[in-house]
Every structure is written in C-alpha cells, then in structure tokens.
Design a protein around this nucleic acid. Sequence first.
DNA 1: CGGCAGTATGTAAGCGCTTGCATTTTCAAT
DNA 2: ATTGAAAATGCAAGCGCTTACATACTGCCG
Lengths: 340, 340
Amino acid sequence: MSDHPAPPTLDDVARAAGVSTATVSRCLNDPKMVSAPTRERVDSAIKTLGYTPNFAARFMAVQRTFTVGAIIPTMENAIFARGLQAFQEELHHHGYTLLVSSSAYQAEAEEEQVRALVARGADGLLLIGYDRDQALYDYLQRQRVPVLAAWSFDPDAAIPSIGFDNRSAMRALTTQVLGMGHTRVAMISAHSAENDRARMRIEGARIAMEQNGLSADDLYVVEVSYDINEGAEAFKTLMTGPNRPSLVLCGNDVLAVGAMRGAAELGLSVPDDVSITGFDDIELAQVVTPALTTVHVPHRQMGRLAAQQLVDMIENKTDGAGKELESHVVMRGSVAEPRS
Amino acid sequence: MSDHPAPPTLDDVARAAGVSTATVSRCLNDPKMVSAPTRERVDSAIKTLGYTPNFAARFMAVQRTFTVGAIIPTMENAIFARGLQAFQEELHHHGYTLLVSSSAYQAEAEEEQVRALVARGADGLLLIGYDRDQALYDYLQRQRVPVLAAWSFDPDAAIPSIGFDNRSAMRALTTQVLGMGHTRVAMISAHSAENDRARMRIEGARIAMEQNGLSADDLYVVEVSYDINEGAEAFKTLMTGPNRPSLVLCGNDVLAVGAMRGAAELGLSVPDDVSITGFDDIELAQVVTPALTTVHVPHRQMGRLAAQQLVDMIENKTDGAGKELESHVVMRGSVAEPRS
DNA sequence: CGGCAGTATGTAAGCGCTTGCATTTTCAAT
DNA sequence: ATTGAAAATGCAAGCGCTTACATACTGCCG
C-alpha cells in the first residue's frame, strides 16, 4: 500500500539519489571517497527510505562478517555472564559483534551450534573448555575458523586456551579447608564425562586429600547437573546417608547454594553442622547467608583477554598462544572447624 | 596446504558427486526429489568434503532465515533467563533459531541491536516491554519485520504483547503487605523513564497506598539501575536517612536481594527491623535468608506463548492479538508486621 | 590550449545458494 | 518397438552487496 512493497535495497537508494550503487556503497563504507554534495544526497536518500544494508549480501561480497560466536554451556545462571559481558565489550572495541548461544551442557547441541555459527559466517569462535570431539576440531580447521577455549587452561590442548588451572585452584581451596581438621568430606560435582573443568576440580580435590594425609578414595563424589535444585537434592542425600560428611565441596557456586538450601531444609546449620564450599565466586556467593567460601575467578579479565586473543587470531592468522590466569581462594563464612 | 584452499561450496560438492548444483541443493532441502543412488553419492561427497551450507547465500536466495531475534535488557542476571529459555525451546520446535543480544537497558543500544538483527535477516523480533521510540516501530514496519513485546501486557500498545499486568501485580503485592500495618514505606525502583515495567510497578504501589488509606505521595521512590550493589546502596541510604521506612518495596528481586545485603551490612534484621519485597520470583528469591516475598511471574509460559505467537505472526502475516498472563503474590519470610 | 595528474563516478563481475523452467531419462502401457 | 506421462536432473537467472577496472570530469602546468 504505502511506500515500497519491500524493504529498500542499495539499488533503491541509488535510484533515489540519482547515483550508481557503487557510489552508495562507498558512501557507506568509505565516505571520504565520495564528494560532499553527492554524499549528502545519498545520506538523505538513505534516511528517507529507512534503508539498512543487508548483512548477508555484504557478507557474500566480502567474505567477512566481523562477527564472532560464543557457545556457552548455559545462560540460566550467572557463571558465564560476567566473563561474556567483558568478552563482548572488548570485541566491540575492535569492531566485532558477538553472537551467543548455549549448548545446555550437551555435546551434540554444541556441535549443532558450532555449525550454525560457522554457516552464519562467524569469523571466530569462543568455546568453553576443551573437552570435545576431535572431529569437531577437524571440521573447524577445514572451515578455517579460529577457535579459542576459555574457562580452562591447558597448554597441550588442540586449541589455544585462556583460563585458569581448575585443578590447582580446587586443590588450593580444598587444602585450605582441610586444614581446619575435616576428615569426612564429600563432593557434589557436575557430570565430569565431557567437562574438563568438572574433572579437573575433582582431581584437584583428590590431590589435596592425599597431600593432607587422607586417601583420595575417601572423597565421595556425586555427580549431578549444574542446577540449584539438583545441588540441594544431592546434598540432602549425602547428609541423610551413612557416614555423613562434615565438609561438602561443590563443583561451583550454584551447586553450593543449592547445598545451602538443602541444609536449611534439613535444619542443619552452616557452617556449624557442615561446611560448604563453591567455585567461581559469582554474585550469588556473597548474597547467601553465610557467604560462600569459594574460588575467585578473574571473569572479566578472562573475557577481555579472550576477545583480544581471538581478534588477533582472526586478523593475523596467528595461532595464538593462550594464557593462564590466576585464581584465588576466598574464605568466607560457610566453612568452619568440624564439630568434635 | 592440505585439502582445499577454502571451505567447500555447493559447487565443490556438485563436482565431487558428478551432478549439478541444483541437485545438491535439492538433496539438502527436499531429499525426496532426488533418486536414491544420486542422493547417496551427494551425501557422501558432502561428508567427505565436510561441507556446511552457507547461510548467507541461502538467505539471499530465499529471503527467509528461520531466525528470530530477541533483545533483552540484560544477561547479567536471571530475570529473563528462564523465559528466554522457554522461548527458544518453543522456537526450536517450530524450526526456528534464536539470536539473543542485550541492550544494557539503553535505548540507543537497543535500536542498534534491532538494526543489526534486521540486517541479519531475522524473520521476527522479540522485545521486552513496549516503551520505545515510535521511529523504531516505523522502521520495523517498513522493514516488514513482525515484532512482539513480552514481560508486559498492554492491549493498546503499538505492537502486540504477551505478558502480565505489572501495575496490578504490584498493587496486589503492596496491598497484601500493607495489610500487616506498615505506614512508612519506600520503594527502590529501576529507572522508570524508558521502562514501562518499572513505571507500572511504581504506579501499582501508589494505587495500593491510596486504597489502603495512605497517600500515594508518601511513597518515597528512589530509582537506580537493576544491580545488586545499587540496591544495597540505595537501601542503606534509605535506612540511614530521616523517616526510616518499615517496608521497602523493590522493583525486582535483584534489587531486593541487594537491599537484603544492605540490611545485613547495617546490622538490621529482615523482617524484624524492616520488611523487604521483590518482584519476578527468580531463583535468587528462594535462596536468600529469609526467602523473599515477591510476585511470581509465569516466565516459562510467557516464553512459550511468545514463541508461538511470533511464529504465527511470521508465517501467517497475522497481526497477533497478544495475551495477558496471570501473576501471583508469593508470601515468604522477608516481610512481617512493623515494630510497634 | 593540449595533456596529464588526480579525483569522482559508473560498469559489471562475482560471492554461494535456490528455483522456475527446460531437458533428459525412466518405464509402463500399448 | 513406440509413445507419452512422470520422475529426475540440469540450466541459468537473480537475491543485494562490494570492488577492480574503466570512464568521465576537474584543474593546472608547460
């Protein structure tokens, strides 16, 4: 009815301004190539027509999208939020746009998302951790898409990574808490099968056990999904079963907060009846009562560096060296000496 | 060095399989049009080449992406997470992919994202609330992109919306808590200027004040950003100022949790010294101690319905009627009668 | 005043895919 | 065998943009 039957194209703008499409294109991408008067005519045509360049068409023409994709395991909690935020801010500085999707901690879903992002022309990809099928790495390599892993660091992995040493971080935390005298300890972890971070954290806890005169086998580990409710349930099972622990290490803050809720539901006091620790130091950790003893991870720094590194990989075709960041233990109210 | 210098294209596959590109394309999009033997040859060529169709090229050819975009104010907390999750699950059922981006509660950022999503060929858009520049709506209309608003419901808005009545929800909550006898009440709200949800919640609280024999002007409102720390600071200012309230209504759960942290920092007990309420009923609300009295919002239902509606708008070019959902007050430990 | 930079603009060839239409193949019925 | 309808495949245009190259204008120098 009204104006145009379809959204305006470069061609429409060109016609309206009485110039060629090339001129309009230049106006958009490199204005100084165009004389002032024509530029004005073109600009006003663009404005009155409400023209937005078609991204796909531009992509086809230049084979670059200035877009990077990130696939995170979940958006449901804040674990990746802060880091991702910093990642995207830094990308923005470099003129890139971020596309995010989540895999729900499932390998096939992740693979699907990777393909979707590649098909959409992502210039580079950020993945979490490095545990995944070799075939996926092969695919990515064939597609010439640079990939960077974050939230984990492993100099020997197939792809460069920016992150911290989950194993030694968990070891440090465990050692410190064991120092208070705990001997009956359990751990609530995420499923470790395809999750290097979960696996490393368990290992770290085990190592700490041994270094503190306990047996690694005495660490009873139960694996659940990263979810507050599952954390609460697992905790309750743990505490109502035989050989009740005095210390429950949790794979991350979300599980730990779940455990704390579980404790409340059982009428147990934290830390008097049982000590609980988390991992990540997300906002949640400081909001619960008592506040959570956890491992503080440099989320923002990690996101920022990841963006820098990835952009570098994209633009200079370098392979990127990866970088290990420091994490540190934060002692708060959720741990205490065990009851005698 | 290795295989191909560049990622394989349809053409490469066609050549490898000894057929035309048309056949390969049909193999991908409508396999039953192709005879079994050729299909096998094509499929194996695709596999050995590691071919992924180029999304942009397909988009150009068919002018449809089966992608919808959603722009939410923030990913930093869980406010939109659950609803968005349901939204994307439902979209998936209908064969659509979701692209998410966040505006950081800033109008220009949102506009930028809208354009980016449109440029990327989103078939439809989900926005939060309906408060935005008319020019943006005009633009969207010219681009022929269906838009749906969520988290708010207003039958008279420029675009169809799926959500609840923020005003009456807040009125119900406030009325219920005022019934306990509070007379000195304050509210910590998000900035209401370009946020209809915040504005309606304030209005709802005011209406409840009047209906309960208080003056709407007596509701002291302080506006901050949706952020735990800001909530804590605002709360502390409120409580250390003159005319200290016995009830602090918060615009959402995040602010309320911030307020609770503020109370802890001041050494005030909730709800004995002061009652606090939230809005949204995100996970956080049940994790803090005491648990938060708040308004429960049907996040998942809203997300699901929004997806259905939007798909319908896209596929049938209907205008969509919108739908109002019910919310309800959840009384928990964070409120009590005021001290006498 | 011819000619030559230099600047501004236009022309047209793709980028990788889909799809209407034309062409070839297949195969059952004569 | 012959034929024709149906099934399978190929051809080629075109989706909206960029960009190398060609062309058309400026002045300005000799």
